[in-house]
Design a protein around this nucleic acid. Structure first.
Length: 782
DNA sequence: GTTTAGGGTTCG
């Protein structure tokens, strides 16, 4: 078999390949040169799933990294393996293996511009007379270089083409600001279609026609001014202009185009690259767009519709009904009242989908929108309760023959001119959040009579009318927080508590009138349990400065590769010529798999440190002294694990030599727990904690109670909230349930809490404070 | 099998 497994040689520097073969340097590899009796060697840093090509032959792609130059992208090369050899390799080759190939063809790499790798790729197959040797690298053997190669070479570097540099027949990556778009609609072929016109700072426009059988893989554009990043879009000339069209492997990210909004990509891709650099690009495009692209104005509300005009409406779907073959009815509301009498499209009661009670309750606030032709199919699939943006609705003034009063009709005509269509907005869309808050604040009694209110009270259950009514109902019935202990205690009125002496403990039933801080990220602090001090969480800039400061001292080579760690050092290629050293801590005299490895880094930037935390279990930034490695200033995290930065208390810590880590490394299965690491390093670990002030009321009085919570109350670890958008949204939603914005006191939900009172005395005054304890947010609220 | 749409408001 031409795929050979080689044994690990004792001397690990040479791979035992047949004598007649000579190693070829990647630098000397060129198309058309004679590479007979030469071999290419590298570490497998990436492999793709085995696939079949159009002609039915098997195909397997891997990426090799040259270990002599691990930190250069150009020293990695794509290897395309065909036929039986592809199958054989796919079975045995793993990341970290050393891979040797002889008898290959060298061709120009069509993806070099995109992935930044070698300008050529290798074609390998039995037919071409290729031979493959490999040395098992994973998981039994790692060298520091392999660890580094695996870490620094993973993400391909994409090149983005400005819109004025597009050429016919190319496949490119690009950024653009949406100047015009048609939300995905059902085409006359087999796919969904979306047409998007982009503009960029080169001031050139590009209209892209995007097709996909899967609506989700088209860009999620909600408004003009959104920013998109397209990968692998094909450029063609059409009618004398460049045009973009989906090609195989097309992928997109969409961002809110508002300056200052969170940079969170909308995408259906499971994995995608998104680095600090790209983050910066989005920010820059936003700034450019702010003064160069006219963003759509504030969306129209029903209260401001003008007859005879076209408008975009952000609304919630309350009901829908089939009308006839070419039209379909949507009943929607946006919380405001249309100032004109609007038409009611007659439909059979049995055809009307939606909660009867809600339809009745909102009957004076909903409008009927009749959608036609190509929009019908999409309209049918919409879920009651979902949030929509309907683009280019026609407000048509009409008067019925039988009456003098003119009324207003809402049509979504057939076709897709001017972006006419329907888009479903997700719950986390900022416009939806705003609309939801508004809808919840609408006082239905103002536009309803008492009869309908009774109906709501009477009909307890709503099945699929999301969030709005059912949520409101739920909130008025069950408490939104529950007790985790002492259930036998009975409630005490707040007035009684205020008039009692401290310290005592109480069970209370109260409403949350307000809380501080309103910006939830401000509620996260660092707490030292030894000296009881609280401090702000330092921001990334502070850390960056400390790293820059420590990089001034070059790594001391005398401290490299000791009994308990292996080291690699290299100099960056840029002008700064920075020296970086990484020390991989060994276990049982061996290096571990990246996900189990603790490493120490000297001279790295914020971005490099961050990148290392993605691949390795623990990262500890250090600096060299004359005779030892030591931790940086304690204003910087002493340890990074996953997304969490761990800090030590400056007052209570007494840093010990980093060599103490070797005692953990010597354990049978090193756990690398932050508490254990902190202990051996003499660090008093600061804990992340939520600190909030809740103003509770119960009709007898009001008091401020502090919430001091590591994780229990919100069931969200305070340590993870600052780096996790999902958890932030979850916490915001929880607070919105506990204390819904814009709601009257009577409509607020009940909280069940334990609070304890305690005395705070200083020379000047005496004060009684209250703290919430043994309380958690109810399960169905989280 | 490689289309569909290729921006520029309306039948109802």
């Amino acid at each position: 078999m031409p795929v050979h497994l080689l044994k690990i040689p004792d001397d690990q520097s040479e791979t035992p390949v047949p004598r007649h073969l000579q190693k070829e340097d990647l630098k000397h590899l060129q198309e058309g040169h004679d590479h007979t009796n030469k071999y290419i060697q590298g570490i497998v840093i990436l492999s793709y799933p085995l696939t079949k090509l159009g002609d039915g032959t098997d195909f397997f792609k891997i990426v090799l990294q040259d270990l002599d130059d691990v930190c250069s992208r150009i020293s990695s090369i794509n290897v395309l393996i065909h036929g039986k050899m592809a199958q054989d390799c796919a079975k045995v080759i793993r990341h970290g293996d050393t891979f040797v190939v002889a008898g290959f063809k060298v061709l120009k790499s069509p993806t070099a511009r995109e992935d930044g790798r070698h300008g050529c790729h290798l074609e390998v197959s039995e037919e071409a007379g290729s031979t493959i040797y490999y040395v098992r690298g994973y998981p039994t053997f790692f060298s520091p270089k392999i660890l580094l190669a695996l870490c620094f070479s993973i993400a391909p570097k994409y090149v983005y083409t400005p819109l004025n540099r597009l050429k016919d027949g190319t496949i490119v990556n690009l950024y653009g600001i949406v100047k015009f778009f048609k939300p995905p609609y059902v085409s006359k072929g087999t796919d969904y279609c979306s047409v998007v016109t982009l503009v960029d700072p080169s001031n050139v426009k590009l209209t892209c026609t995007l097709f996909s059988g899967n609506q989700d893989s088209l860009p999620r554009i909600y408004k003009i001014g959104d920013i998109v990043r397209f990968h692998r879009i094909k450029i063609r000339e059409y009618n004398g202009q460049m045009q973009g069209i989906t090609s195989g492997g097309f992928a997109s990210l969409t961002f809110d185009g508002t300056v200052g909004a969170p940079v969170v990509p909308r995408t259906s891709s499971r994995v995608y690259t998104f680095t600090d650099e790209e983050h910066k690009t989005i920010e820059e495009l936003r700034v450019w767009a702010a003064s160069n692209v006219s963003i759509s104005g504030p969306a129209a509300k029903l209260s401001s519709v003008q007859p005879m005009l076209f408008f975009d409406l952000t609304c919630q779907l309350v009901g829908k009904a089939k009308v006839d073959g070419s039209s379909f009815l949507l009943k929607v509301w946006d919380g405001t009242k249309c100032p004109y009498p609007s038409w009611r499209v007659p439909v059979e009661a049995k055809d009307l989908e939606g909660e009867k009670v809600v339809l009745h309750q909102l009957r004076n606030l909903t409008v009927d929108i009749l959608v036609y032709d190509n929009h019908v199919q999409l309209a049918k699939s919409l879920k009651i309760g979902s949030f929509l943006r309907i683009y280019s609705i026609h407000a048509k003034q009409a008067s019925a023959d039988t009456e003098d009063v003119s009324h207003i009709e809402f049509h979504l005509h057939g076709g897709t001119c001017y972006g006419r269509g329907i888009g479903v907005l997700p719950e986390n869309n900022p416009d939806v959040k705003e609309l939801k808050a508004f809808l919840e604040s609408v006082d239905l009694a103002d536009s309803q009579n008492m009869e309908s209110m009774f109906l709501v009270e009477f009909n307890g259950t709503f099945s699929d009318f999301t969030d709005l009514e059912s949520h409101l109902q739920r909130c008025q019935q069950l408490p939104v927080t529950v007790l985790t202990d002492h259930q036998d205690l009975s409630n005490t009125e707040l007035k009684t508590i205020i008039n009692s002496t401290a310290p005592q403990q109480y069970r209370v039933r109260a409403k949350l009138r307000t809380y501080k801080p309103q910006k939830l990220h401000q509620s996260v602090k660092l707490h030292c349990s030894k000296c009881n001090s609280l401090q702000e969480v330092p921001d990334g800039d502070d850390f960056d400065l400390i790293l820059q400061g420590s990089a001034v001292t070059a790594p001391n080579p005398e401290l490299h590769s000791t009994s308990w760690y292996d080291s690699v050092m290299w100099t960056t290629q840029d002008q700064k010529q920075r020296k970086i050293a990484i020390h991989f801590v060994k276990h049982d005299e061996m290096l571990q798999q990246p996900e189990d490895t603790l490493l120490m880094i000297e001279g790295g930037t914020l971005k490099e440190v961050w990148k290392l935390t993605k691949r390795f279990k623990c990262v500890i930034p250090v600096k060299s002294t004359e005779d030892d490695l030591e931790l940086l200033d304690l204003s910087a995290p002493f340890l990074l694990q996953g997304n969490v930065k761990y800090y030590g208390c400056k007052q209570c810590s007494a840093p010990k030599p980093v060599k103490n880590l070797s005692s953990i490394a010597a354990e049978q299965q090193p756990s690398w727990e932050p508490t254990v690491i902190a202990q051996v390093l003499g660090i008093e670990l600061l804990q992340y904690v939520f600190i909030m002030k809740f103003t509770l009321v119960d009709g007898t009085g009001a008091l401020n109670a502090y919430l001091f919570d590591y994780e229990k109350f919100f069931q969200i670890p305070a340590s993870e909230i600052l780096t996790n958008n999902f958890l932030q949204e979850k916490m915001q939603m929880t607070m919105n349930t506990l204390c819904p914005p814009g709601r009257k006191l009577g409509d607020l939900p009940w909280l069940e809490c334990f609070i304890k009172s305690y005395n705070v005395r200083d020379a000047m005054k005496h004060q009684v404070c209250y703290q919430i304890f043994d309380t958690t947010v109810a399960e169905d609220v989280v």
